[in-house]
């Protein structure tokens, strides 16, 4: 029980393909762990209570709010952040390429959450309609209101990804 009563725990997880081990406070969110302990500041924090969607990351392939998950809950999980989406340092993921081409980001604050949310969605729905894309990003706030280019970029990326590119 002494272990159960502690306010800090050891957490082991794989982040963007690299094994990580750290002692973290149990109240530290996964978002703060990624940003502050691992220096992966691509994951953005807007509201810290699950509304804005900026902090969305992939945990075992599922898009989740990293502000609504404790770092200690990532024990044994594989986490992918925006830094881990591209296949290598010189190649963008097709979704990132389409975002750049369609100017689907202006200030870029919402972009990491948009990309991670859409990545899981496109796995489950490889040929979405524009309406389905609008609904799936309804939980990701873009204050530049750049939704139209985001939808256009996603439609194009989906086609590229279906083609095996």
């Amino acid at each position: 029980m002494s272990e159960d009563r502690s306010l800090a725990r050891r957490v082991n997880c794989v982040v963007n393909g690299t094994a990580q081990a750290a002692e973290v406070s149990v109240r530290r969110t996964l978002a703060d762990y990624l940003r502050q302990d691992l220096g992966l500041t691509g994951t953005h924090l807007g509201c810290e209570h699950g509304v804005c969607g900026a902090c969305t990351v992939l945990v075992d392939g599922r898009a989740v709010r990293s502000c609504l998950m404790l770092a200690v809950q990532a024990e044994g999980c594989a986490v992918t952040t925006v830094e881990g989406i591209a296949p290598d340092v010189v190649t963008l993921h097709p979704l990132q390429t389409a975002f750049a081409k369609h100017h689907a980001l202006q200030c870029g604050f919402c972009t990491p959450g948009m990309l991670t949310t859409l990545l899981e969605f496109l796995e489950e729905v490889p040929a979405p309609t524009a309406e389905e894309i609008r609904i799936v990003i309804s939980g990701n706030l873009c204050r530049c209101t750049g939704y139209e280019p985001i939808v256009a970029a996603t439609l194009e990326a989906a086609a590229v990804m279906r083609g095996g590119a």
């Binding site: 898009a63 709010r65 609504l68 899981e120 799936v136």
Partner: peptide, 12 residues
Amino acid sequence: VRHIAHWPIRTR
């Protein structure tokens, strides 16, 4: 289920 919050809330 489509009416419940947003996709990344429904995964968790």
